[in-house]
């Protein structure tokens, strides 16, 4: 079937098999490989992207379900490595990543959280990230990064 998705502001259209998962559409059709696949059971969150502004696990969404909708991946958050989105900047400043595999999904889950709750408590951050597994950081610096990004964004 023909699927057209607005990915990071640009239209991506392709003829794909009906069963194509959104994550493979992003990686193989749109050529955006930051979004990773870490499990088969919607458990790990490595594939998290924003669909119409809300975080979803792109391994559990069909490309067809995203047809005509807006998808944002980590590649779409900033214009390049020079100018980071506040959440990306906070992950960098707080050492919120090590191997980097969970990072794109973790960042997108955090962006989604802060859109819904601009001033989360530590418990709320932990709870909001429960669908994103990280095996390197023990979450300690990830949580600090999200809290830092939140206080950065709050008008003082």
């Amino acid at each position: 079937m023909k699927v057209t998705v607005t990915v990071n502001g640009g239209e991506v259209a392709a003829e794909v098999a009906d069963r194509t998962l959104l994550v493979h559409f992003l990686r193989d059709v749109a050529g955006l490989t930051a979004t990773n696949v870490g499990c088969d059971t919607s458990s790990c969150g490595a594939c998290t992207v924003l669909l119409d502004g809300r975080s979803v696990k792109s391994c559990t969404v069909l490309a067809a379900q995203a047809d005509g909708r807006q998808v944002t991946t980590v590649e779409g958050l900033s214009s390049g490595s020079e100018e980071l989105h506040p959440v990306q900047q906070a992950f960098r400043a707080e050492h919120g990543l090590q191997c980097g595999f969970c990072t794109p999904g973790m960042v997108m889950a955090s962006v989604s959280l802060l859109a819904e709750n601009p001033s989360p408590t530590e418990d709320e951050v932990r709870s909001a990230l429960e669908g994103n597994l990280c095996r390197c950081t023990g979450y300690h610096n990830i949580v600090r990064a999200v809290l830092a990004a939140a206080s950065e964004r709050r008008p003082s």
């Binding site: 919607s42 969150g45 998290t48 975080s55 696990k57 959280l113 819904e116 429960e130």
Partner: peptide, 9 residues
């Protein structure tokens, strides 16, 4: 239920 991503869908 589940996690935020699951609740969004």
């Amino acid at each position: 239920i589940g996690d935020p991503q699951v609740r969004h869908c």
